[in-house]
Design a protein around this nucleic acid. Sequence first.
DNA 1: CACCAAGTAGAACCGTGGTTCTAGTCCTAC
DNA 2: GTAGGACTAGAACCACGGTTCTACTTGGTG
Lengths: 189, 189
Amino acid sequence: MSLTARERILTAADELFYGDGIATTGVDAVVDRAGVALGSVYNNFGGKDGLVEAYLRRRDHLWRALWERVAADAATPRERVLSVFDALLEWCRDQAADQGCAQVAGLLQLPAGHPAVAVARTHKEHLMRRLTELAAGLTGVREVAEDVAILYEGVLVRMLLGSPPEEAIPRARKMAETVIAARSGTSAP
Amino acid sequence: MSLTARERILTAADELFYGDGIATTGVDAVVDRAGVALGSVYNNFGGKDGLVEAYLRRRDHLWRALWERVAADAATPRERVLSVFDALLEWCRDQAADQGCAQVAGLLQLPAGHPAVAVARTHKEHLMRRLTELAAGLTGVREVAEDVAILYEGVLVRMLLGSPPEEAIPRARKMAETVIAARSGTSAP
DNA sequence: CACCAAGTAGAACCGTGGTTCTAGTCCTAC
DNA sequence: GTAGGACTAGAACCACGGTTCTACTTGGTG
């Protein structure tokens, strides 16, 4: 066997959970696509809840790594905050992103007490913290982070609604530039 | 009886579907909260699918009406596009909006063929069309509409993630102002 | 070799939740 | 008054999906 059952399950779950929704896709569908025994899901993840949590946690890790890698190329604070849009664009070149943010989707379709909602919340808290850190040096650090967060979430929803990434993401990035410039007093008193 | 069963069901469904999620809340829960017989749901809506569709359709109507009413008070094209943020803020004064946009939530948790997803898609298409109409007269009508849409969706997600409406909505509105001003070449007052 | 962990195949269980049906009540309109 | 439509109460049905269990195979390791 080339890949371990756990990884096969995780990739299958990612495709199905993200593409068709979490509640909509049953464990059987994941098992079928992964070409794996039903028991392997329960051996590795303890149940569907555990699988969903692992699904969001994996995406969380991937995104954090991507953010870090892309931000490392940025020289100025301004470019650093803006790099989240570059990261998003890079993600879209490889993966499907036509369902928006998986973490937000998880928050919306999972019941309040579900173990995976904590993962999603933490993911977004991390994004805010990271944006604040990246913006260090700009005027109005906290404000810039909040602004960029709105634009970031907004463009993801617009992509869910059919906007092409190559158009929407640069648009959001440009808005962020404009807003940052206006805040730092570059063009306005 | 003060209210008809259909209306009781719709208000109960609205609270539960929006607050707890659509897939999560069963027909029984709606029936219990509405204080209504189970059969009334099937008499009036034909089933859960019909109820979900009616739920989104009702919200669609409410939002369209609110947008129109608030936009009517605006004098300039610039104020007209920005009025969607005023409408959103007004909505938040009366209703809970801590779960973001119900239409987006519907898109994310309903299967592809569900009758309600068409309602949600139409709702968002209408928003885009309306934004374009409201922006008529500004430089870059289509671009302004796209920009405002991103900000609008973004602030709704940020509210879902815990941002207080009284803070996030004016922030998004301010960004829209800045972006519009930058696009039309005039510096902000 | 023997062992053990990981994986497989398939059946079976069972709670949840959407749906249907029946019998009866209440109000309205003709 | 009576016929009809809306609504109620509650039982019953039924399918789907998450979960468990057993028996078997496989591959690596001491």
